[in-house]
Amino acid sequence: MVATDEALLAGMAAGDPLAAAAFVRRYQARVFGLALTIVGVRATAEDVAQEAFTRAWRYAPGYDPRRGAVSAWLLTIARNAAVDVLRTTRDQPYDPATLVDLVTARPPAGEAPADAVADRERLRTALRSLPAEQAQAVLLAAYYGLTAREIAERDGLPLGTVKTRIRLGLGRLRDLMEVRDG
């Protein structure tokens, strides 16, 4: 029998090292993969992934099981840890177009549940259908944690233009993802 994510997290919240070990084994490739996508360097990504799991251990009692999947909670923690590193090094390893290519590339078939794979594939298709500047603005915010103001300064664009790109881009993704859900 396989423990649910929620059970593993409850075990971590209670301080159970065996639950922590199972949790790390289950998620290390996802967390390390996200960290690598954001920071671009394996050694740095390893530090980020360690920091992410350490924060997850600390915050496990704060996880709200009624809100979203454990994986989304953990990936948000990993993303924040990676963004902290980028803010220190003032580095962005990939240009926006490359970031979009990385995120929308079809991954090799894995052992993930089929419905999760299908959702991800729909979101990739939706991202590819956006105007390039909207997809790039959304991903710079999501992955690098850049504010609209930072993107505007970086690209020499008016702040309003960048805010509009993020708003239209994320709104369009939501509409496309909700067509079949709703």
């Binding site: 290390q28 993969g33 799991f53 350490t54 991954p107 991202l127 709104g171």
Partner: peptide, 29 residues
């Protein structure tokens, strides 16, 4: 909107961390 934002992070390709990652991270955690 946050559901979509969560989904975007899940698109990053998984990658196996270096050998020994698990024991280092468990000691740290």
């Amino acid at each position: 909107l946050a559901d979509v934002a969560d989904g975007l992070l899940a698109l990053a390709a998984p990658a196996e961390p270096p050998a020994g990652f698990e024991s280092v991270v468990l000691a740290r955690m």
